[in-house]
Design a binder for these strands. Structure first.
Lengths: 108, 108
DNA sequence: CCACTTAATCGTAATATTACAATAAATAAA
DNA sequence: TTTATTTATTGTAATATTACGATTAAGTGG
């Protein structure tokens, strides 16, 4: 046990969950907040800005990249992380679609 | 280690993450899908509908209740779970607000 | 009261996540 | 080449999550 039974859910359910899961950590929200605020790429000052060790930030960035929210381009010795606008839109659509599913009136 | 350093993030960041975290499991998405689809309360047939053991479903329901997405009312020997419409709206707003933060043009 | 049904809780095993020190890899600058 | 600088990776400890069997709790019907 301890392992999610993905096989019993639909692809859509697994996908929504996977996206939400990545957004389910304050460090990753903070990283996105920071990158979005600067409106441009950000490199290793995330480590200074957010109070976490460099390997930890690197790990979080990796997860954000894995679901496609971020993309990183190497710039000399540092790496520039940005929002992947296309994917962000798609992710936004998918989550919004899910969130707008609610019936107006629940029974209890 | 292994414990999230919530203190170093803003309340808003922690809140968004907490909501997303709960949505970050396909079983909980499936539960919500089912409850929303029926447009009315659902009791223990979630256990039949979704292929997970009763204690597991119960655990997931508890987490959905914890962040306020669901509310459960006892009906005789069974329990009726519904979307908490007020909270759902608020959660929708908070997530939508976060997702609409993205600048139109990223740098890389 | 006694069986039955339904859901919550407890205990626990398996796995995942979070965080970081240590180290490696890769480029830049001297 | 050597030395910084920057980021990724590896290894690992602490904690959290997921899932479920066993049990408990609480109501229903006989």
């Amino acid at each position: 046990m301890g392992l999610t039974k993905s096989e019993i859910f639909t692809d859509e359910q697994n996908e929504i969950a996977a996206i939400a899961k990545v957004l389910g950590h304050p460090a990753r929200i903070a990283i996105l907040d920071y990158i979005i605020k600067l409106k441009s790429c950000v490199c290793g000052d995330l480590v200074k800005e957010i109070g976490l060790a460099q390997p930890t930030i690197s790990q979080h960035l990796k997860e954000l990249k894995k679901v496609g929210i971020l993309k990183g381009t190497i710039e000399g010795t540092s790496v520039c992380y940005c929002i992947d606008d296309e994917n962000w839109k798609e992710i936004n659509n998918k989550l919004s679609k899910f969130l707008s599913k609610n019936p107006t009136e629940s029974c209890c």
